[in-house]
Nucleic acid binder design. Structure first.
Length: 269
DNA sequence: CAAGGTGTTGTCCA
DNA sequence: ATGGACAACACCTT
């Protein structure tokens, strides 16, 4: 559930706190979240110097002197920087750093911590297929990526190979801000619809970035983001009035996920 | 206290 | 190309 705003904030924090540090030792309690055997993972990154942290979609890219550490937090969890004698109760992978601190990674479901050897980033399939970051493309590129598609607009926004970084938490407010129903199909969109949608993506994600990300995720020091449930306009507000027109907000099925809409502002297809 | 829902991603199948 | 079901087995709400 960390989506682009949380990943951007996490990358920023990690750059401030981790660059220049060296990995002394590694423990991995859950081999299933790795892409290589535990021994290979430990050998690969032990002794590595951390050089910088970037992001692509919901993935964090930690560049090191010995290759990349790629992290995907799945449906939520914590990356914490703690003293070595103050480990959190739960962690799945742990990097002991110089300076008696430890970077612990925990996710409560479906996370990944992958090792990619130097020069082999292009062979990492899970990240190689990602589309451009949702905030890193122009409105022309966005429109171009929509042309020829036939599916529903919400499916497109959530498809990480088309555009990377939007998940099922922010997509409700993005679609509401663009006045588009999630089940609208792409061929029915006018140029003005696409332009509004492009603007809505930027505005809605930026609102959360400015607040430090969502309240349900924590940073390296355990502090929560400042973007709270009250900042959501329509997502998860089933039964409450639409702030634009007062119509009761509905929860609907949108494929295998659920969606939240104002049935007046977002006319069904 | 047990059941059901959930922010992610990949794969398989229609 | 598109959508749905499902699997990965944690945590919270009902």
């Amino acid at each position: 559930m960390p989506e682009l705003p949380e990943i951007i904030c996490r990358a920023r924090e990690m750059n401030e706190a981790l660059v220049g540090r060296t990995v002394r030792s590694i423990e991995a309690l859950q081999p299933k979240c790795l892409n290589v055997p535990v021994e290979k993972f430990r050998e690969g990154l032990t002794g590595a110097k951390l050089l910088g942290v970037t992001h692509r979609g919901k993935w964090l890219f930690v560049e090191t002197s010995r290759g990349h550490l790629l992290i995907n937090m799945g449906m939520g969890g914590e990356i914490l920087l703690v003293p070595q004698d103050g480990l959190p109760e739960k962690w799945r992978v742990r990097f002991d750093l110089d300076g008696d601190e430890t970077l612990t990674i925990n996710f409560w479901w479906f996370g990944n911590t992958h090792f990619v050897a130097p020069g082999e980033l292009g062979e990492h399939e899970m990240t190689a297929k990602l589309g451009p970051n949702a905030l890193d493309l122009s409105s022309e590129e966005f429109a171009q990526r929509l042309t020829g598609r036939r599916g529903r607009i919400k499916s497109f926004l959530l498809d990480q190979s088309k555009i990377a970084g939007i998940g099922n938490a922010y997509v409700h407010d993005i679609l509401f801000a663009a006045k588009l129903h999630p089940l609208r199909t792409i061929p029915t969109l006018e140029a003005a619809d696409i332009e509004r949608l492009y603007g809505a993506i930027r505005t809605e994600l930026q609102r959360s970035i400015d607040a430090g990300g969502a309240w349900y995720e924590v940073g390296l020091n355990g502090g929560r983001g400042g973007f709270t449930a009250d900042d959501l306009v329509i997502g998860y507000r089933e039964g409450k009035p639409c702030p634009e027109c007062g119509t009761t907000i509905e929860k609907i099925k949108t494929g295998s996920t659920s969606g939240f809409i104002c049935p007046t502002c977002q006319v069904p297809p």
